[in-house]
Design a protein around this nucleic acid. Sequence first.
DNA 1: AGAATAGTGTCTGTGAGACAATATCTG
DNA 2: CAGATATTGTCTCACAGACACTATTCT
Lengths: 235, 235
Amino acid sequence: MTEEEFLKSYKPNDYPSLLLTVDSVLFTVENQSLKILLLKRANHPSKGLWSLPGGFIDTENDATTEETALRKIREKTKVTPPYLEQLQTFSSADRDPRGWSATVTYFALIAHQETETRLTNDTQWVALDNLSTLQPLAFDHQQIIKVALKRLRQKSLYSMLPIFCLPKEFTLGEYHQLMEIILNKMIQKKSLYRRFKASEMFEETGKTVATGARAAVLYRLKTDVELINFERNLG
Amino acid sequence: MTEEEFLKSYKPNDYPSLLLTVDSVLFTVENQSLKILLLKRANHPSKGLWSLPGGFIDTENDATTEETALRKIREKTKVTPPYLEQLQTFSSADRDPRGWSATVTYFALIAHQETETRLTNDTQWVALDNLSTLQPLAFDHQQIIKVALKRLRQKSLYSMLPIFCLPKEFTLGEYHQLMEIILNKMIQKKSLYRRFKASEMFEETGKTVATGARAAVLYRLKTDVELINFERNLG
DNA sequence: AGAATAGTGTCTGTGAGACAATATCTG
DNA sequence: CAGATATTGTCTCACAGACACTATTCT
């Protein structure tokens, strides 16, 4: 049998079906808190519980799971996050009552300013500190969030990843505050600014912003720069 | 409708099916080369091409994709690798001619001594340097290997991960050589030995092994130790 | 003893941590 | 000018890189 003949005789439905979904942990920092986007499930299973934005793959229109993740995030926020990275795939026979299932998860960052007044009604930014008040979460989403948070924190120690939570123009002070919120501990400004400069990823806008005292310089990302990794961790 | 009623009426086959597989990149070092386990495909599609060990999930017996990965590796090598970690999920509408598909990939490490004379006939350790002679590989396995290699090298810079390519008892010299092969560059013995000691993961066996000159001390992993991450990268 | 390989001493360089010092705003 | 916040200077410390040196085993 040639490969062509094989493919002609191949019937996908002869094989046991399983569930494959895509879910995203979208982070932002707002009002001194690290928050994630959650939405209230409208349908069974786990109807009424809070869950991560995600859903089934549309095999006609999504070329990859990354496109599914982006499509679902755009549906809920109306915008495309500037950073999206695959996290991990969670699978098990019993994480979904409908049967054996797997979910390919992504984690994403966005500036909350980008999403303001654009969220759909079933959607909400939830501070990680308040997560316990929304328990239980749908499926194994609690665990997915935990893994995503761990990855975000780890990467923040050796890269400038958190800048994707900042608006287009920002000050060093804002970046410093952001890092302290994400890592939940005090960070030396000097260490951070050294890296900021060494990364060569940013340029001054020429503008400054006043805060009641000495004005702070506004920076922006240079065009077409890549996120670089440092060889040592902070903290 | 209650969740119970919903589940009763839920028919998996009402939904478009897609392919979900699991593939593993199993690394070892043998004869001064970094090698991976490949096998010649016996069936369509890509019959006759070299591919990674893997296959479909057996939803009756595999609780998770990790179990699928281990089952497939065991089938081919008769042993369980001491290190297995999820790599990434690759998906696309056209990576498999049978239709939209995704593969959850793992990367694993093992000492080649463990697998000697136990490999099935369709299976072979292939040096990464010789991969080009086996082109093309099935599906997108070439790219998967590339990503796995990158991860292995990156992790080797800040952890003792490569020790899982060594036999139960080994010398510092063997570890040093192993690192140089994986990273494909010269590594300072002193730096490596400092970390080895600082990790506190190992203990002397009391035995030594002669190599024609001064005998080298044999070490082994302590029981129940965790792989720790260093805060700086090597070279 | 001499060759060969195992393992150590020690100096230099880099970049993070600590925190003091200086600069530049506003009122 | 005083107070507040932004930004820089600079010292210390940990650890990787370099490479010379010592130790141990074999013939």
